[in-house]
Design a protein around this nucleic acid. Structure first.
Lengths: 176, 176
DNA sequence: AATAATATGTTATGTTATAACATATTTAAT
DNA sequence: ATTAAATATGTTATAACATAACATATTATT
């Protein structure tokens, strides 16, 4: 089972995450004859600045700064679409936000663990999970094509913080 | 494992679905001292007219007809919020739409099987699935609070239709 | 260098959702 | 029964998310 839950939810050398993600993107684009244009690379870079999913309009604002000119929504959405199609970025529907995929080449569960306190989202693959969903689908005579699995809760950091000092920084990344 | 995949995705006496849903709602509201006002009951009724998730603005339009007067979005969203809080209705984030819950009292997986062809959504509970997600969360030291699990594909009806006559009525309920 | 294909710019608008405040209705308390 | 409190709805405006349609620019192919 692959997972980036450790790095996503805990302190780490994040420059590595960014560089690795950009390297993977360049590789994948070369391999697929897709153009990683400056705009697209910037958007990917911005998305990877943290492990918190970013909304399109947050990206727009930051992309405008990076580019030194104003950027209209379609430009952002196009870049996102490109990255999503290549599997480099996922959309998390319940958040209307986008997150970098840590393993764009591997088989996917599209399973996200989203912290309701700090907003970070970790992704995990899980073969047992896929088997189970497949068998549930079979039972229902449902032809499974794709999936979106979102778990909401507290990451280790935030859980520790809330249980030790009773204080909770609530950024309101709730789902319910 | 509970599931309404048979009834949701296949021909059935749908009046039963509607009546049962309204009965459950009345029970639950009585039990919780919550008021199932005409507006709320109408919205629930409208949501249960089919097994296809309805958007808030579709509900608005239909509610206006039912009520014989124009209805503003907040009225619809308030009714939805009420129903969602009671567990009578689920929001399906990837569709920005709402669907009736067939078993509002039972433990939930919040697992939806959404047909990309006809748009119908069936819900299933699955204890094995819950255990698996719980253990995945444990491994990631993630405190699981709630979840949203969306499967996209083809229901039996639509799969049969597409494979037998090659023709496909595509209403474009796609996710990818 | 001309053509085709791809990518971005630009304007406008569609779609989903909520904030803020006013009014009405229902419930509980006196 | 009357008042007060709580709950629900009406109303206006706007925020937040997303795409359509068409123009221009850039890159790849011939």
């Amino acid at each position: 089972m692959l997972s980036n839950s450790r790095s996503a939810h805990q302190p780490h050398n994040h420059l590595r995450c960014i560089n690795a993600a950009l390297d993977r993107a360049r590789d994948l684009c070369a391999q697929k004859n897709a153009r990683l244009t400056p705009t697209r690379e910037r958007v990917l870079n911005l998305i990877w600045q943290s492990h918190q999913p970013l909304g399109a309009y947050q990206l727009q604002e930051q992309l405008a700064k990076l580019s030194g000119k104003s950027i209209a929504p379609p430009t952002v959405y196009r870049a996102i679409e490109f990255l999503v199609n290549l599997g480099l970025v996922h959309r998390i529907p319940s958040l209307n936000a986008f997150i970098g995929c840590p393993f764009p080449n591997s088989a996917h569960s599209n399973l996200f663990m989203i912290c309701q306190n700090c907003g970070s989202a970790a992704e995990a693959t899980h073969s047992g999970l896929n088997d189970l969903l497949q068998s549930a689908s079979n039972r229902a005579q449902f032809i499974l094509k794709s999936q979106n699995l979102e778990l909401f809760g507290l990451c280790l950091q935030c859980n520790t913080a809330t249980t030790t000092n009773g204080e909770q920084v609530n950024h309101d990344y709730t789902n319910d």
